[in-house]
């Protein structure tokens, strides 16, 4: 955490321009000295770009990753003034928030998670909780504490007997509950989907849960578009509010298909924003042991 404090100090005192020169070094380092990440990136990029990947693409991919992580320092410190954030698809989520019955937000390891949280904090009265694995929860909270002790996060840890009961309770209070649904915790049912032209596996758990809880599900993504620009998209994913028991499995299948369609669309729109640095198309994505959160 000391490194993070130092980086945070540089970023806030010397400014985003100076700090970003460090990011170029980091991106170059990854291109040259991180063969595992490079392999994962080379496995992904041609699928999203629709052409062979060049060294420059690799560099852009790692730079995009470093930039979004770095910008978290500013976002956590509420320096929204530094950014140009374009929000699209508000009409897909506002009526659901106003209805006050709780909404599930599903994202992916695509783009910036912090920029979405930033938007959430700007809407008065809107409360968001995130579902995530306990290890990640601890990492994130100690990171937040190092950068800005006031920026806490409401986290529902997975892997507990009552994890889902907690989700139910938060939704019952009219809260938004978010999760990233593109990685598995291991040892759970998966669905085969066609992602960027090849077979990949997605966990069915998040969708089953949404169906059981009979809630609307909104897809969300916060894409880094270069310089200081971010683009947030909200898309209708599914609404299980009226789904009868007998049609649940079918509705879950449709939701997974829709989620896949959205992943295809947004990885093609912003290819360098994909932050699953492991072989997503081959092995079961064992996300928990990955270095990249």
């Amino acid at each position: 955490m000391l490194m993070l404090r130092i980086m945070s100090w540089i970023s806030l005192r010397l400014g985003r321009r100076v700090a970003r020169s460090v990011l170029h070094l980091i991106a170059a380092y990854f291109v040259l000295f991180a063969p595992d990440n490079r392999r994962a990136s080379l496995n992904y990029l041609p699928r999203a770009l629709g052409r062979p990947a060049t060294w420059l693409d690799l560099y852009r991919h790692f730079f995009c990753f470093a930039a979004t992580i770095h910008d978290r320092i500013y976002l956590i410190n509420r320096r929204y003034d530094l950014f140009d954030i374009d929000i699209q698809g508000k009409e897909n989520i506002h009526p659901l928030i106003d209805a006050g019955k709780g909404v599930l937000l599903m994202g992916a390891h695509l783009g910036s998670f912090e920029v979405m949280r930033a938007i959430g904090r700007q809407l008065p009265g809107l409360r968001v909780a995130m579902v995530m694995h306990e290890d990640n929860a601890q990492k994130i909270n100690s990171m937040l504490a190092a950068i800005n002790p006031e920026a806490s996060m409401d986290i529902i840890p997975l892997g507990r007997i009552d994890s889902m009961l907690q989700v139910q309770e938060r939704l019952g209070d009219g809260m938004l509950v978010g999760m990233l649904s593109d990685r598995t915790l291991g040892n759970e049912p998966m669905a085969q989907v066609n992602l960027l032209g090849a077979t990949a596996a997605l966990p069915t758990g998040p969708f089953r849960m949404a169906a059981l809880l009979r809630r609307p599900v909104v897809f969300m993504v916060g894409l880094y578009m270069g310089d200081n620009r971010y683009q947030i998209h909200f898309e209708t994913l599914a609404d299980f509010s009226e789904t009868p028991r007998g049609q649940r499995d079918q509705a879950v299948e449709m939701a997974i298909a829709r989620y896949t369609e959205l992943l295809n669309r947004y990885t093609r729109l912003a290819p360098y924003n994909w932050f699953n640095f492991f072989d997503y198309w081959q092995s079961v994505p064992a996300s928990l042991n990955e270095k990249n959160e």
Partner: peptide, 11 residues
Amino acid sequence: LDSIDILEVAL
């Protein structure tokens, strides 16, 4: 059972 199953039972 996993936690989603537990939720289903609870419901």
